[in-house]
Design a protein around this nucleic acid. Sequence first.
DNA 1: CAACAACCGGAGTCCGATTCACCTTATGGA
DNA 2: TCCATAAGGTGAATCGGACTCCGGTTGTTG
Lengths: 195, 195
Amino acid sequence: MPSSRPLRADARRNRDALVVAAREAFLAGDAAHVEEIARRAGVAVGTLYRHFETREALVAEVYRQEVAELCAAPALLLAQHAPDEALRTFLLLLVEHAAVGRGMGEALESIMATDSPVFDDARDEMARALDELLAAGVAAGLVRDDVKGRVVLRALGGICGMRAKGWKDDALQVVTVLYDGLRYGAADRGHNAPE
Amino acid sequence: MPSSRPLRADARRNRDALVVAAREAFLAGDAAHVEEIARRAGVAVGTLYRHFETREALVAEVYRQEVAELCAAPALLLAQHAPDEALRTFLLLLVEHAAVGRGMGEALESIMATDSPVFDDARDEMARALDELLAAGVAAGLVRDDVKGRVVLRALGGICGMRAKGWKDDALQVVTVLYDGLRYGAADRGHNAPE
DNA sequence: CAACAACCGGAGTCCGATTCACCTTATGGA
DNA sequence: TCCATAAGGTGAATCGGACTCCGGTTGTTG
């Protein structure tokens, strides 16, 4: 169905404009009303709804693009850093991503609240990225082997909801604790604690 | 202002009924509309609004009561368990609490989204409870001393938003990693350790 | 370039939160 | 006990924002 027909030129243009407009609106933090988004994109609400089932579907699309971008990172990081350092860096990257998602505010929350497959996919993709990093760490004996990426992701999830002033400092501390927790198991098991 | 007048008998009764009705509605998961809550409480919406500024204010009140109940735990736990065990148990308790809050669904999220002082207070109270536990752990040399309760709380926060099937198992794993991360620093300073 | 399918517009519908003008009824003093 | 009165209660009306729908418009294709 997706590519049954290549989508008419003007339609594709409008669709893209809507996603861009939505992202901008979310980042700006204010006025994420469908009317407002449509206006920014230079179309009417009807057009918005032609392309996106619901408002949430639009949010989902924006979010999906964010995630896709983020998930490209692990391969790069592993190529350039030791596994534990790559993991740490990626966690910090997730915090940055949260900073972006933060602008999307409740938009993001509403999508997390739904169990829309779109979001599940995004989560899976993120989890897979983390698994990649964890596996590398485990192989090097630097990371405990009993934790899945999905779990790490959830531990970080709380950061996204935080909106108070000092959220970022706290987020960084969360990463520290989490990072240590992930390595602790490996060290605890004792055999070759890294120098 | 609070106790300028003791609040008329029927008014107090209605107010309490509303909180109870709201809690039930949230736990039931369905129909958290103000009309529905008012009906359950046997009053009209106008009455609801006489007692609570907004729908969110009502949610806040329910949540506050949950929190207050939860925050009574640390003192008890410390009296009966070693500091690290008390900490671990409390973390697990937080997960249970999340299970309750989960029923409140987006109601809870909407209140987190606001920077209503009510929720800040709740968070402070929880953080204080955690600080109490952490301090005991630090004093016993079982827990790292560079992490505030607020940070732990945020790390756990992500659990609340999770609604997928296996959320609870994941939540428990998050607690494990977090718990180890909290102890790791102490071990780091105490014994041999990576890096 | 005609015919058609896919698009677009935007006023109208739906639904839930919130308000408000007007009754009811505790309550406390005569 | 009874009344005055202000605290309380009521629910229809209002408001805001997501979503729908029925023409009019415009790429596309043969």
